[in-house]
């Protein structure tokens, strides 16, 4: 699908950057003039994905980084790719079950993927143990304006 605009950013997997990451993606998505609710949904979904990388992917590993790519696609669709090179997920199906968490002692609710799935239109998760995890989310900004690529 044709990319109308694109932004890439890589940052250290530190919890201080959770706020930065979701704000950055939303600032880019604002070009589509989405509604407050659409932007809040995107902000929450991005926060979950980035937090997963920080909390789970790089558990006990220092110096890891997270790569975020945001694209504006035709029909007011926002594409967000969040990739880490962390421990990977052995059983994606289990990890995506609502309320399942590999870290319940830390009060992780086990809802990260549920939020991502509910607050976007399409969620794809690919992962390899020891290699890393990539999450791709697509969300159509229904009330947004058509992106002017001229």
């Amino acid at each position: 699908m044709k990319t109308l605009n694109e932004m890439k950013c890589t940052f250290p997997a530190r919890s201080e950057n959770e706020s930065f990451a979701r704000t950055m993606v939303c600032a880019f998505a604002a070009q589509l003039d989405p509604t407050v609710e659409e932007l809040a949904d995107l902000r929450t979904a991005v926060s979950e994905a980035v937090t997963n990388s920080i909390v789970h992917a790089y558990r006990g590993i220092s110096g890891g980084s997270i790569a975020v790519t945001v694209r504006l696609l035709p029909d007011s669709v926002i594409y967000v790719r969040i990739a880490d090179k962390g421990c990977g997920i052995a059983d994606i199906e289990k990890a995506m079950e609502p309320l399942y968490s590999s870290a319940p002692a830390e009060e992780r609710a086990g809802l990260g993927f549920t939020v991502m799935e509910s607050f976007t239109d399409k969620l794809q998760v690919s992962s390899k143990v020891g290699i890393g995890t990539t999450v791709i989310m697509r969300k159509k900004m229904r009330h947004g304006r058509e992106y002017d690529c001229h």
């Binding site: 902000r43 929450t44 926060s47 979950e48 009060e107 992780r108 609710a109 549920t114 939020v115």
Partner: peptide
């Protein structure tokens, strides 16, 4: 703003 970390906190 609140994400599912807030849910963990509430529960």
């Amino acid at each position: 703003f609140m994400d599912s970390s807030g849910i963990g906190l509430i529960i």
